[in-house]
């Protein structure tokens, strides 16, 4: 077998090994984890998952994360749509500078913004709400959404717009009835990336919440207790965070490659 056919397989195995170990560990009791090293659970248990799924202070973390991620996706895509249309169709004062200014925010290290964000959102009374995290994540998701959508929109010929105008379509009707369906896959891909980057981010989400909107990733640090780390529960919590991502990938699996190319993510 040729090297170039083997490499993707080898890399996939490399990707799956640590994940397999995490899942394997999530079905073991803490004692088993610490006493023996085995490739599959000797004493199969769902105890760790039961701990998480029956304790509101655990599972509310998943709900909180999903709420702010979805909120962020909706906000990012809906305000990016008109902006991307403007960038792809019109020339206006400062358009190029504006585009690069937007993109430069994708380059801002979140660590730089953690403290000022905390102060900003505290001062407007949004600290510890889902909305605060959703708005904060627009810092990197809105520029990204504009960038991806602009790519998709520019691939639709401009003649379509003019023909619709001649046919007497008003702009809002043209946009919702004709244009949006034409770039539907682009909107899907954009939503996918907004979901992805909001879901994986921890630093800002943790800084902006304390109790009622705390994300699951921050709650996971709770497993450190006086008696040491509860590895089994930690592994189960980690496994559960992989599931939403896998579901989302499954739905966009045939669009990922195209999305990457069009969207220049």
């Amino acid at each position: 077998m040729k090297f170039r056919k083997i490499l993707p397989r080898a890399h996939v195995i490399f990707i799956l090994l640590p994940v397999y170990w995490l899942v394997n560990m999530s079905f073991k009791s803490n004692q088993e984890i610490l006493s023996t090293l085995s490739l599959w659970p000797q004493d199969f248990t769902l105890e760790n998952y039961a701990t998480i799924l029956t304790d509101p202070s655990w599972y509310s973390g998943y709900i909180n994360s999903l709420i702010y991620v979805l909120l962020n996706t909706v906000i990012s895509v809906s305000i990016a749509l008109p902006a991307a249309y403007a960038f792809s169709r019109y020339r206006f004062l400062g358009d190029k500078h504006l585009f690069f200014w937007l993109l430069s925010n994708r380059m801002a290290p979140p660590a730089v913004f953690a403290l000022p964000f905390f102060q900003l959102y505290s001062s407007i009374g949004l600290f510890d709400t889902h909305l605060a995290v959703a708005l904060a994540h627009t810092l990197f998701n809105v520029p990204l959404a504009v960038w991806i959508l602009e790519g998709f929109m520019s691939s639709v010929p401009r003649e379509i717009d003019e023909t619709a105008q001649i046919d007497g379509y008003s702009f809002p009707r043209f946009f919702t009835k004709i244009f949006a369906p034409m770039i539907a896959s682009g909107i899907g891909v954009t939503a996918f990336f907004c979901f992805m980057f909001s879901w994986v981010e921890l630093l800002l989400a943790r800084t902006l919440t304390s109790v009622s909107a705390k994300p699951i990733s921050a709650i996971m640090t709770r497993t450190v207790s006086a008696s040491g780390l509860d590895w089994g529960v930690l592994a189960a919590a980690g496994t559960l965070t992989i599931i939403p991502g896998m579901l989302v990938i499954y739905f966009v699996r045939n669009h990922i490659a195209r999305g990457f190319a069009m969207g220049r993510v």
């Binding site: 990707i15 640590p18 996971m220 045939n254």
Partner: peptide, 20 residues
């Protein structure tokens, strides 16, 4: 392959740390 390759990209970053 697309799905398997995209898998690590959608894992929260602190969970990536935990996994390793």
């Amino acid at each position: 392959y697309m799905m398997l390759l995209a898998l690590p990209l959608l894992i929260p970053w602190n969970v990536v740390g935990t996994i390793w």
